[in-house]
Every structure is written in C-alpha cells, then in structure tokens.
C-alpha cells in the first residue's frame, strides 16, 4: 500500500493514510486479502486458464461454483466478479446467505478465498465503470475485503492505492439526487447505464408495475433520455 503510516499498534496493526480508488460491491464473502489482479487471457475459459497463486482474479461475468473451487485450489486469494447464483455461493461458503447477511454467525472468515460481486446475486455482468477501473490498475497490489453487513451498510470493497500526491475527487457525502448529479443506474432495464439528472419530479410517478415512486429524468451518456425511479440511482458525481 502506498501511503503514510499514522498509527502503529505493535504486534497488532498499522494504520496507513493515503489516497485510493474504492470500488464497492453489492455482496461479498471472506476477510481482507491483498494481491495483484489477474485477468484471464482473452478467450480463455476460467475452467482451464492457469491460476496465479496469491492473485485476485477478475471474472467480468457470472461466477460459477467450479471456478471458485478451482481458484481456491490454485491458490488465488480473491475473486472479483459481476454476479453469482445464491445457491452456488452458498455451496462454496457452506453457509446460508441470509444467516451471514444478518450476522447471526461469525462471518465466513475461514473461506479459502475472498469473493466480491459487483452486481450481487443473479447473472448480471460487471458494470462497465467497475470493469474500466479494475482494468486500469494492471498488476498493482490491491486490498480486497468481502465483509458484507447490510444492517450497517458495510459493503465489500476493493481498495486500489493511488501514488502519493495523486489528485482525488471525493464524492458528495449525502448522495442526494438532484438536477445536474451524475448517476449510475443499479437496477431495472437500464441497469449499468450512466447519465446526468435533468430534473427530479416534484410528484411521484407511475412505473411499469403500477407503483407510484419518486422519479428523476435522466439524460444517458448515449444521448437518450428516460425516467428512472430514484431508488435505482446511485450518485457518482
């Protein structure tokens, strides 16, 4: 990690202060690990590609149980993927996900590797922004934590340190969606899309299933405009 040591607890921990790019996932398993990213050569199947021991694999699509098992056996310390099926993740963790998420048992720290899913459960591919951010970091050593506790809004994350003195761009703390905000759509038909809020409706609007919910009008990066429910928007700038 690049940074400045600001606190030392002998034999226990050091605190390093520095700038880093953080990518949060939706669901993760396992404790903190560090290692370099490893990408599969283009066209290679994760079922046959060589596993680099100590690495953190990036799987842009759906993560399968066989890949998790193979990565663990090959000595990888982590996997960052788009999504996975609940059943397969539970088979790998040998635990009920609802029990883990409600923190009713100690987290699966004994897992052979740490997993972070950027989109959560299902079959979605990793969003383009996360893919791009991860791709920019080459073989840097990064920190990955799979710890997920929704009751305290603790999310899995990968921290990619920036060189000392790098300019930083903090996000708005409150995440309030207002006109001009740059947002990312996290669910629905336009999931994965980026755009700018042109206005927030003063009244709630009907969505496809008939619910009345707060909505905003977005101009997407591809030039199209569409109304999106506020709860599907995540502010990124």
């Amino acid at each position: 990690m690049t940074g400045k040591v600001v606190d030392v607890a002998p034999g226990r921990w050091v605190t390093i202060e520095g700038a880093a790019t953080l990518v949060h996932g939706v669901l993760g398993l396992g404790g903190p690990v560090a290692g370099p990213f490893a990408r599969l050569p283009r066209g290679d199947s994760p079922l046959v590609a060589p596993i680099i021991p100590g690495s953190i694999l990036i799987i842009p699509g759906q993560l399968r149980l066989t890949v998790m098992q193979r990565a663990a056996a090959g000595g990888a310390v982590g996997i960052i993927a788009g999504s996975a099926q609940a059943r397969e993740l539970e088979a790998f963790a040998r635990a009920d996900l609802s029990v883990l998420l409600d923190d009713l048992v100690p987290s699966a720290a004994s897992l052979p590797l740490t997993v972070m899913l950027t989109e959560g459960l299902g079959s979605a591919s990793m969003n383009a922004t996360a893919q791009q951010l991860l791709a920019q970091r080459g073989n840097d050593i990064v920190l990955l934590s799979g710890y997920t506790e929704p009751h305290r809004n603790l999310r899995p994350e990968v921290a990619m340190p920036l060189p000392l003195g790098s300019p930083t761009h903090p996000l708005p703390l409150d995440g309030v969606i207002s006109a001009g905000a740059r947002v990312y759509v996290i669910a629905g038909e336009r999931a994965g899309g980026h755009g700018v809020v042109t206005h927030v409706f003063a009244r709630r609007q009907f969505i496809a299933n008939g619910l009345l919910v707060p909505c905003a009008m977005l101009r997407f990066d591809d030039g199209t405009t569409a109304m999106e429910p506020l709860h599907t928007l995540q502010r990124i700038g």
Partner: peptide
C-alpha cells in the same frame, strides 16, 4: 435470490410486476 437482494439493497422497491 430476490429476497437476498432485498436484504442487500433495503431501499430498493419492486421494479417489475
């Protein structure tokens, strides 16, 4: 999976029928 995603995204409301 729907239920587990509701735990993960508590503010999310149903989007489809």
């Amino acid at each position: 999976e729907y239920a587990l995603m509701r735990m993960l995204r508590p503010t999310m409301l149903p989007l489809t029928t």
